[in-house]
Design a protein around this nucleic acid. Structure first.
Length: 773
RNA sequence: GGGCUUGUGGUCUAGUUUGGUUAUGAUGCUGCCUCGACAUGGCAGUGAUCGAGUGUUCAAAUCACUCCAGGCCCA
């Protein structure tokens, strides 16, 4: 009989037609029911070309989660969104157009950002679609849409009213030339020659001289402690004693701290507000009172006494002079110092306390730990990232940014008394250009307002994704039936940001956890295990890879090569070689397509054996799927299909399937079993490789989509797995002997079937053309 | 500098939780083979002192400690 499948290999080009069919038949459309399974899909950020191949792999696996749930009988809600707020697009736009954000009119700059995002987004959507994501593309959302930003603002207003948001002045990176705070990403470091001044401090009790080296002597007035390494024997008897600071004559304590390097300078370090980021950390850790020595104008403040009004560099020259005149300098070394500069103005940044908005989090940490305990993590080890982070949180969350492309903070200030006005929720507010909705100030009656120019930290937007997709505050029934969502799939590098902030915000807004499970994926590295980056030139563009090898190949590679939660290496060669398995599956199907699909037959012992192996496979796969660990089913299916089903069983059953020397009932047993095994394999594999399984399923077994089927159930058949190795050893033995005697495989040979394989004797004799006893 | 994590044939990977024959599978390489699904195939072979060291034990890839190298996040 002619095979129904004519082509000799799986052609990835067939994927396009299948995609189109799925779209036309709307098989993944979501209708609200009582059995909803909501995925809090990560909205990817279009930060530049090409998209990260690790991210593409990540989304392929998220789709496997959706398909697994769907084939387990759940009503899957799989929203698709794009995250579009934040710094990267601003930097991308500045570079692309050769402009500067603060020198460009705000509205104009926002438009350029939006256009850039549209371009990058189009490519990401194309990749997600061609990967076969069964998500809701028709209603995909953007975090910079009016709707989403309105929602972010609403949740902020809610929290403002609850009193968990406050303004506070804390140290920030500050570029006094362009008058703005600087994100860490905008700092560049340069080696700059500077003077290391060895100054004489005096112990209060014994009047002993202690030498302390610093590159920032102008900050003596802001010195609050001196640290020494606890292992530094020179100072061990001075720990806890007081020192007199030169010139200012204030008193500070000597504190032990591991960050003091014994070999640098004199080993004793003065801690000032703020010489560098280490000072900030120490002030926080040791709970010191900060002194503001440098103001927003970039000049020394009144605490600097006689140096007030000077720029730090001028003050430094002057203070060194004064120290030398007072004989308070031991020596001065010329050194090269790694200095943080503003990328923009190329001037050294200062760390200056500035007023920003904060969201309270310190008082919620115990609650967060409890929720963290309740959420099931896949793999469980990554729960530790969250727990460790909760242990180390020491300040509240600063949520305001002095940037343009983000959700605006919806606040106006009275020009007269500075009283803040926070509007009613329900509208999208842009205070930098919109008129204040209030007629007059509630406090003083003044009618003039100034809009807030700052935007939110981008995590303020992303952290409400589960609330946005479940229509919190906008569709009560929908929300009730979809929240808390089922699962949060995400990458491991943003557990401390996205996962944590989502937990925090959702708890504060709803009192509940946002999801029951969290699924954490590792990071995609290059083939040598190094981080991929455009500058290193080792980034792999996923689009051509998917176009060449096909989405199923890419997906099967992702499933079978990536151990759950661990970092993984990406190599084009590896991806391409995965295709061999799909080819094997195709040809097995092609062979079976020459036999009719029948409902029953008389099962031989070999049929019972393969069905018992199949039963074991089902149980292994379902166990893997229940943990959303696709490595387990993909490798188990490959092993079974290739090395047991194709290599052993098909060869054993082939002669019987052709019916030569067997009764019709015996023949039908083989044909029935062949189809039963293949159709089960296809269903088991459908969540991982949706295209080829759909094509084969519809060609061989049904008009309907395989993705509307359920995963097969085990039948608890008698375990015959001890036969598997015996059969394959016997078959190898026959094949080897024929080879040694230079016989063709169809030639007859005299070998006895061993006693233990007696039950398979008839099949084995026909298979090998044995002249047997 | 701190926290978490990884290190198994040329390459990738299973096994480490709970120590126990000859360390799993894929890929690569070599040789042979067109036998009625498949040369994108079949068969056979090659190849690992399990990152290094020390310790515990009758027994260590597996447990403990130290070191080296990579990754992620935070300074």
């Amino acid at each position: 009989m002619e095979p129904k499948i004519a082509q000799k290999a799986w052609d990835p080009k067939l994927e396009n037609a299948i995609l189109k069919k799925w779209e036309e038949e709307k098989i993944y459309d979501f209708q609200l029911s009582d059995n909803n399974y909501t995925i809090d899909t990560p909205p990817p950020y279009p930060s530049g070309r090409p998209w990260h191949i690790g991210a593409a792999s990540h989304y392929a696996q998220i789709d496997m989660i959706a398909r697994t749930a769907r084939m387990s009988g759940k009503n899957v809600y799989f929203p698709i969104g794009i995250d579009r707020n934040g710094l990267p697009v601003e930097l991308y736009t500045e570079k692309k157009h050769g402009i500067r954000m603060r020198e460009t009119e705000r509205g104009e700059f926002l438009e350029l950002c939006e256009n850039a995002l549209d371009d990058l987004e189009a490519e990401m959507i194309q990749i997600m679609k061609s990967l076969g994501l069964s998500g809701d593309f028709k209603n995909y959302y953007r975090t910079d849409s009016e709707d989403y930003r309105k929602f972010t603002q609403e949740t902020f207003i809610d929290l403002w009213k609850k009193g968990v948001i406050y303004l506070a002045t804390r140290p920030n990176n500050y570029d006094w030339v362009s008058g703005t705070t600087i994100a860490d990403a905008e700092i560049v470091y340069e080696e700059i020659p500077t003077k290391l001044v060895y100054m004489k401090f005096i112990t209060k009790e014994t009047k002993k001289e202690i030498i302390i080296a610093s590159t920032r002597p102008e900050l003596l007035c802001a010195c609050k402690t001196v640290i020494v390494n606890p292992n530094d024997e020179r100072y061990s008897d001075l720990i806890g004693k007081e020192l007199i600071v030169p010139l200012t004559n204030s008193e500070v304590k000597i504190t032990p701290h591991h960050s003091a390097k014994i070999e640098f300078g004199s080993g004793a370090v003065m801690v000032c507000s703020y010489g560098d980021q280490n000072d900030v950390a120490l002030f926080r850790e040791l709970q010191l009172d900060e002194v503001i020595a440098i103001g927003l104008d970039g000049r020394m403040t009144e605490v600097a006494g006689g140096y007030q009004g000077l720029k730090p560099k001028q003050a430094r020259t002057k203070i060194i002079e004064d120290l030398e005149n007072a004989n308070l300098v031991e020596k001065i070394e010329d050194i090269s110092h790694r200095t943080p500069l503003s990328e923009r103005s190329k001037t050294p940044i200062e760390i200056v306390p500035m007023e920003e908005y904060y969201l309270k989090q310190k008082d919620s940490l115990e609650k967060m730990k409890k929720l963290g305990e309740e959420i099931e993590f896949h793999p469980n080890m990554h729960k530790q990232i969250l727990m460790n982070w909760l242990e180390s949180i020491s300040i509240d969350w600063p949520i305001s940014r002095r940037r343009f492309y983000g959700t605006e903070i919806p606040i106006w200030y009275c020009n007269e008394c500075s009283e803040p006005f926070v509007p009613e929720p329900g509208k999208y507010y842009r205070p930098w250009k919109d008129k204040c909705p209030a007629e007059k100030c509630e406090k003083c009656g003044n009618m003039e307002f100034t809009g807030e120019e700052r935007t939110f930290d981008t995590w303020m937007d992303s952290s409400v994704s589960p609330l946005f997709v479940t229509k919190f505050n906008r569709d009560e029934e929908f929300f009730k039936k979809t929240y808390p969502t089922a699962i949060r799939p995400q990458a491991k590098d943003i557990v401390r940001t996205w996962l944590y902030y989502t937990l925090l915000r959702c708890e504060k807004l709803t009192g509940e956890k946002p999801w029951s499970e969290a699924w954490i994926m590792g990071y995609g590295l290059d083939e040598k295990g190094m981080k991929m980056s455009k500058s290193k030139g080792n980034a792999i563009d996923p689009l051509p890879v998917i176009e060449k090898s096909g989405a199923d190949t890419f997906r099967f590679w992702s499933a079978s090569e990536i151990n759950q939660g661990y970092d993984f290496r990406c190599s084009e060669q590896k991806i391409e070689s995965t295709r061999k398995f799909l080819s094997k599956l195709w040809n097995v199907s092609r062979f079976l397509s020459s036999f009719p699909v029948i409902k029953s037959g008389q099962l031989s012992e070999s049929d019972k054996w393969i069905l018992s192996e199949l039963d074991k496979l089902i149980s292994v796969c379902k166990e893997g799927y229940s943990k959303y660990n696709f490595f387990i089913p993909s490798t188990a299916i490959r092993e079974f299909t290739w090395n047991i089903f194709a290599a052993q069983y098909i060869e054993i059953a082939k002669a019987r399937a052709y019916g030569i020397g067997f009764t019709d009932e015996e023949r039908d047993g083989a044909i029935f079993t062949l189809h039963k095994v293949l159709s089960t394999i296809l269903k088991l594999l459908a969540p991982i490789t949706p295209f080829i399984t759909e094509h084969l399923w519809q060609t061989l077994y049904s008009q309907d989509s395989i993705h509307e089927e359920n995963l097969p159930d085990i039948e608890n058949l008698n375990d015959m797995s001890e036969m598997t190795q015996l059969l394959s050893e016997f078959n190898s033995k026959v094949w080897n002997e024929k080879k040694q005697k230079e016989l063709s495989l169809k030639d007859s040979i005299k070998i006895d079937v061993p006693e233990i394989l007696n039950q398979f004797k008839k099949d084995l004799i026909a298979m090998h053309n044995l002249e047997s006893n």
